[in-house]
């Protein structure tokens, strides 16, 4: 075990963006400085800019203009086209359990990248933040956007970030905890909002699971895969086991908890799972 330093400065910041509470924690020698507060302010500003661009609620946002036919996706801002391409990839990787083309209240199929944008925007803003933090010495950082989390660590004297997975049956309880230095955790479920997550292939609400949590190297895909696993329900396990570098915890409606781990994964980040009973 390495030595852990517990008296390093640590500071948290919270703002409400995209209808979500977004918490950012920084720990390291300059965590309390105005300079780092400025970097975090910039990260929040980047998220607000993405919200303005991708919101389906704001009637004149660029994505809303595409949705109602005023603008064409092929002429859209490069950032929107990048998201559209990622959504296509997400559809392929999830066997259609994720799609950016969804029926609206009137039944018409419209471009709705919301399911990918949140995780992607948070990961992008977080990557910029952690890159810029490096100019101020070694710092670790964490972001929690409404229950979807990314962490990044450059120090070697700090404890792992400890992430607790909420029990969807009793939100005051924790199902599991896991330790991460760099990576992401995303949970898809209906416990918080009570709303349905629809299967884009059928339009029917997904009913097989109470929650699906994915652990992976970055939030964009952990978030997409968590949504897809929730949609797949009882058919999620065999698919999850094929995902490189991702682990999962599922809770179904019969109170069964399923875990999928992928030890020994090759790639830029090595996933290491230790299992004990």
């Amino acid at each position: 075990m390495s030595v852990t330093v517990t008296d390093l400065p640590r500071r948290a910041f919270v703002e409400q963006i995209m209808g979500l509470p977004i918490s950012i924690h920084v720990r390291g020698p300059e965590a309390g400085s105005d300079a780092i507060a400025g970097l975090v302010t910039d990260a929040f500003a980047a998220l607000r800019a993405d919200d303005a661009m991708f919101s389906t609620w704001k009637p004149d946002s660029p994505v809303s203009r595409i949705r109602d036919g005023r603008d064409q996706l092929r002429n859209a801002h490069p950032r929107i086209r990048q998201v559209a391409a990622l959504c296509e990839l997400a559809g392929q990787r999830t066997g259609g359990a994720f799609s950016a083309w969804r029926p609206g209240p009137d039944g018409r199929i419209r471009f709705d990248p919301t399911g990918l944008v949140k995780g992607w925007a948070v990961q992008q803003a977080f990557d910029v933040l952690t890159t810029r933090l490096a100019h101020h010495g070694r710092h670790d950082a964490l972001v929690n956007a409404g229950g979807d989390i990314a962490v990044h660590s450059t120090r070697t004297d700090t404890p792992d970030w400890v992430i607790a997975i909420e029990d969807p049956r009793d939100r005051s309880r924790m199902l599991r905890t896991l330790c991460l230095r760099t990576g992401a955790v995303a949970t898809s479920g209906t416990a918080a909002r009570g709303e349905h997550i629809a299967d884009p292939r059928t339009g029917a609400p997904a009913t097989g699971l109470l929650s699906a949590t994915l652990i992976g190297p970055e939030l964009t895909w952990a978030d997409v895969y968590a949504t897809a696993a929730f949609v797949k329900g009882g058919r999620a396990l065999p698919w999850l086991a094929t995902l490189e570098g991702h682990a999962a915890v599922l809770v179904d409606r019969e109170d069964r908890i399923s875990t999928v781990a992928a030890p020994g994964t090759a790639g830029p980040i090595r996933a290491q799972a230790s299992v004990a009973r």
């Binding site: 390495s2 599991r176 330790c179 230095r181 069964r256 399923s258 799972a273």
Partner: peptide
């Protein structure tokens, strides 16, 4: 790669901790 799939019926069974390590850290989980 080796895949482990475990299915459990209660919440207080298998405890599974995942750890992604950076190249500069070898701390055990």
């Amino acid at each position: 790669r080796k895949i482990i799939v475990a299915v459990m019926s209660t919440i207080s069974g298998l405890v599974l901790l995942f750890s992604y390590h950076t190249s500069t850290n070898s701390q055990a989980t």
